[in-house]
Nucleic acid binder design. Structure first.
Lengths: 190, 190, 190, 190
DNA sequence: ATATAACCGAGACGGTACGTCACGTCTTCAC
DNA sequence: GTGAAGACGTGACGTACCGTCTCGGTTATAT
């Protein structure tokens, strides 16, 4: 089923088809095993159409990530007023995703992609985990709900939280029920 | 210069030559770009000799890691009695390594390798960072030097520390002087 | 010096380059010793370009044969009216070719190729020795010049002549001056 | 089941086992596809034991041939007094062998072996088809049963007969009932 | 209204690396 | 000192993808 043609302007249909094919292939077989030819075939698109707009499969992956096609957009900090509870809920959701076989595999794939492609690395940080808003929220919480001292290194706190998630994905250790809370206790104090 | 033959037993010379070639190639060009043919050529060895003993380049890399050929063995916790100071010194050394272009690249390569190979992931955790002894030391430190409560989740603390290092490597952000201390402050409190 | 590209249609330049390389390599080193990689390298072509169009080196060889690149097209029956003299001249030329070291080696190579590849066998018969026209001519000669009875089994006569040539090539016995005539005498009578 | 050892003299058991394995493998899969490792494994013998006594698989094949393990010894000219009838019977047997799928394949294999190995070529001629005795018999028959002139080129007659058989094997054309007789008619006259 | 030019699908091309097979050499050890 | 076993360096196999390059066909825009 060939895609409809749109003349000498970039075909949005082709672009979407490529991103969807990429996301599907990563979900099915992992970032390694992802090939340009596989994407083109799955998307019903010529290889040149991919190379015209992206320099590498890492770049396509990064755009997938940015479009929210790989990791659901749900990983957003809630905003109830109780920062500690918000963080717990957010981390809980992430660990839940990590607990599913699908999620663990995709996340691991993305780590691999990030390791060899700087763009993916950046996207993985801010588009996926919204690290910025995370540290902003931590800053806002100083002196309020949790036992954060006024000059707490929030940036480092955020890195520690997210880093622990990555390490968990890398090490392939299964997620246990209370893990998210324990991590929060460890980093923020009880 | 062909290696000496040793008959129907495994050639230790070939094994070492392969591991050394692998370590050198990873250090020079990164884990992606590492090829079996490249290893064989550099090691002066037939490809089959590699495939006879390792199923994949990930496995070879894991053995390199285990033999301490990729990351220096220096990342060991000192043991001065002052746990906090020991941790600071250990983290400082790691961040120092991460600060060098070489070290950052190798570490990132290994993360990529870990993402696609479970064995590498495991080795990267315990052979490299001695996570076990790390949490053991944290346990020992409870109630002593630092402000760790008696039931502190040391395992999670260790994961947060190491995870932050990995995230730093992945995100390619340069290391600044006080980073190690700030991370320690963030996770262990001041 | 890369060959010119011609897009998504088969490149005639590549095809010719491959056939020429094949013919040259067979002439130089024999059919055994012929390798796909050798052909590709000599032709300045990717291996896949060979495999895309031919299933085996035997098939490439068969096409060489068909294109007249391996055995000169000169082995054609003259047509003077005197069939006996025509046959003598034709056989003489073949034995002359067989007498040269080059010719003997190539012919033997082709026999080896024919033994393991049916296509080569067929080509070797009809494209090379024009067996068809040979038996047709023999049929035409019945009752005329030679002592062929009206119902002479011309097909078998042709096979005997060509077969004797093959056997000579296989057995590596040097060709002596009067051999062609003697063979003709033996098969056709004096 | 390892073969019994016999100390510092050549093991006849090993030699026979190798030849039998070779003959079986050629019969099963053809001369190309025959491998030294396959022979060794099938014979329950170390590779070195083969290389110690034969320089190539062609040589092993030649010895098989010489021992009558590949082509049945039945292809011998009968000796009834009627040379024409003897030849007819002999050729008939050969064509019968050639008519079986097994026989056609083995013979073709041997031609391939002969094409790349001089020794096999020689053996194939005299050990297999007893060409010597054939031309001797033809000589003896001069002036007797058939219409051979006194100075008939018997050597060439023999070559034509055998050559026709080889060509038939090479060209993979099925054998029809009267073929042997027709060939004899063609070459010797009616 | 028509040419022009960018885009599209398809896929052939010269390459690199894959993982496997077999080669012929060599070494160990049991008999 | 022969023979089974099998590791070794070498080299070819046939396959998968790479990134580049036409090709023929569409279609929006600039003449």
């Amino acid at each position: 089923m060939p895609l409809p043609r749109s003349g000498p302007v970039r075909s949005e249909a082709a672009r979407l088809s490529i991103l969807e094919a990429t996301a599907a292939l990563i979900a099915e077989r992992g970032y390694d095993h992802l090939t340009m030819e596989g994407i083109a075939a799955r998307a019903g698109v010529g290889k040149q159409t991919i190379y015209r707009w992206w320099p590498s499969k890492g770049a396509v992956t990064a755009e997938c990530l940015f479009e929210g096609m790989l990791v659901p957009g749900r990983f957003q900090l809630p905003h109830t007023g109780d920062v500690r509870r918000d963080l717990a809920s957010w981390l809980g959701e992430i660990f839940g995703y990590l607990g599913s076989e699908q999620g663990e595999s995709i996340l691991r794939s993305l780590i691999g992609a990030a390791a060899e492609n700087a763009d993916v690395g950046r996207r993985l940080r801010d588009a996926l985990f919204r690290a910025d808003s995370l540290s902003a929220r931590l800053t806002a919480a100083i002196g309020t709900t949790s036992n954060l001292p006024p000059d707490a290194p929030v940036e480092e706190l955020a890195e520690a939280l997210i880093g622990a998630v990555l390490l968990r994905a890398l090490s392939r250790e299964p997620v246990a029920p209370g893990d998210a809370e324990r991590l929060l206790d460890a980093v923020l104090g009880r």
